[in-house]
Amino acid sequence: MIATNLKLSVILPMVVSNNSPHLIIRARPMKANTDLTALLQQLLDQCQPLYSQGKVADYIPALAQVAPQQAAVAIATLDGQIYSAGAATQPFSLQSISKIFGLVMAMNRLGDELWQRVNMEPSGQPFNSIVQLEWEQGIPRNPVINAGAILVADVLVSHYSASKTAFLTFLRRLTSVETIYADQQVYLSELEHGNRNAALAYLMKSFGNIEAEVPQVLEHYFHQCAMAINCQQLSRALLFLANRGVQPHSNEQICSRRDAHRVNAILSTSGMYDQSGEFAFKVGLPAKSGVGGAIVAIVPQFGVITAWSPPLNRFGNSVVAMQLISQLAEELGLSLF
Rank of each mutant, 00 (worst) to 15 (best):
N5L: 12
L6T: 13
M14Q: 12
H22A: 13
H22D: 15
K31D: 04
T37D: 15
Q41E: 15
Q46T: 06
L50Y: 08
K55Y: 02
Y59F: 14
P61C: 07
Q69S: 15
Q70G: 04
V73I: 15
A74W: 03
A88E: 08
S96K: 01
F101A: 13
M105Q: 13
N108P: 09
R109T: 14
G111V: 11
R117S: 12
V118I: 13
N128V: 02
D154I: 02
V155I: 13
V155P: 01
V155W: 00
Y187F: 14
S189V: 10
E190I: 07
E190M: 06
L191F: 00
N195R: 12
A201M: 04
M204R: 09
A212L: 02
E219T: 01
A237R: 04
F240M: 10
N243R: 07
P248D: 09
H249W: 13
V263K: 09
N264H: 03
Y273I: 08
Y273G: 09
Q275T: 00
E278D: 15
F279E: 06
F279N: 08
F281D: 11
V296K: 03
A297K: 01
V299H: 06
T306G: 06
A307L: 01
W308H: 04
W308R: 04
L312A: 06
N313G: 05
F315L: 07
G316V: 00
A321R: 06
Q327I: 08
